[in-house]
Write a protein that binds this DNA or RNA. Structure first.
Lengths: 200, 200
DNA sequence: AGAGAAATTGCAGACACTGCAATCTTGCAT
DNA sequence: ATGCAAGATTGCAGTGTCTGCAATTTCTCT
């Protein structure tokens, strides 16, 4: 399907990207709340109704990349050799994803400014991330051969995502002075070593 | 203000609680999405417009207890002696909160079933929890005398909340077979000890 | 070329939420 | 007690997101 997806598919993808690009431009210019779906539809030359065939909510335009991001994480995690212990596997997987982020930094920062400025988008992004947590916990449970409802895989997944979130926030906030992968690396190592020193 | 809050205040509180109770009952009966604000207002004998004077969104009725919960966390954290190292202080504070949860388990479970079943409520709850994370990170930064934008306090706060979230989820899912405080305790100890064993 | 599938559109409507202005209730000072 | 000021409640009109439905257009495949 990669070489010849057919005109239909190609057109659909192009429309999707056009909507996304137009919307982000409008959000930059007038803010998220100051931009109506109608305005986006007009600018992207589609009907308002069609907009909702491409995106479930206005929020989802900003977070369009989240789905592929999750796919990447889980994919990486499953590609780690089974012999690799859980935390090491998480570490390796998330470093790859951090490198992805690093590469797309411009697009990322653009989206981030909308996320940070708009509560409803922020809420939606957290919700999607919670979905990542579930997926990661499930993949981890399989690897550790236990149920994903166990405390262990959940906690590991949750903490791994904490590392990413904290690192990202710090990275954005400081104007990317240190590289994202190195921040993530630090976080993972810190959790591997434990908070013992900070406990007594 | 505690002994004599005045008629006005008392009445207001009662109305607020009436709205909350009525709404939760309706959510139980017809689901969150199956219950309109109008229906809640009717049942609580107020006008729909008044509903929005008490709660910013329909979601917020389910999460009405979140504000006081945050207050409690930060309060506990600040009451911990300054000599206490950060992770130990977090551990102690969150254990208190876990005990709170444990005590209100019925109300909690009721709310949880709505949260779990309704994406928009879930999203809102995550957003509020992110606010907790900010507050905890700030309190922690003060205690560690660094800025709250530093990676360290953010990561600690984030992980502490990961422990609570994971524990709560496990606790609810397993039908509260082990006590919440003990789960939280386990989680904190595990993070103190570190994921070293799971790394190599 | 034509049948069938998929995409686009318009329309009507449900619902959450907001600002504004009018009305009613409560607290307080005289 | 009475009247005034602040606060609470309400109705109303309006905006904007999102949905289902049915009609129409656009692609795909034979």
């Amino acid at each position: 399907m990669n070489p010849a997806p057919g005109l239909r598919e190609r057109k659909k993808l192009k429309t999707r990207q056009r909507i996304e690009a137009t919307a982000l431009k409008l959000f930059d210019a007038h803010g998220f709340d100051g931009t109506t779906v109608e305005a986006i539809a007009d600018a992207a030359e589609i009907s308002p109704r069609t907009f909702f065939h491409y995106f479930g909510t206005k929020e989802d335009v900003v977070l369009a990349d989240y789905a592929s991001r999750l796919e990447r994480i889980v994919d990486q995690l499953q590609q780690q050799p089974a012999s690799e212990p859980p935390w090491a596997a998480l570490r390796a997987s998330f470093l790859v994803v951090a490198a992805d982020y690093d590469a797309e930094r411009d697009s990322l920062i653009r989206r981030f400014s909308v996320i940070a400025a708009t509560p409803s988008v922020y809420a939606r992004s957290l919700q999607l991330q919670a979905g990542w947590e579930d997926a990661v916990a499930a993949a981890l449970a399989e690897r550790m051969s236990c149920r994903s409802s166990e405390l262990q895989p959940r906690l590991l997944a949750s903490c791994a995502l904490s590392v990413i979130r904290s690192s990202l926030q710090h990275w954005i906030f400081t104007g990317q002075e240190s590289s994202l992968p190195s921040l993530v690396e630090t976080g993972f190592d810190q959790l591997a070593a434990g908070f013992e020193k900070l406990s007594k």
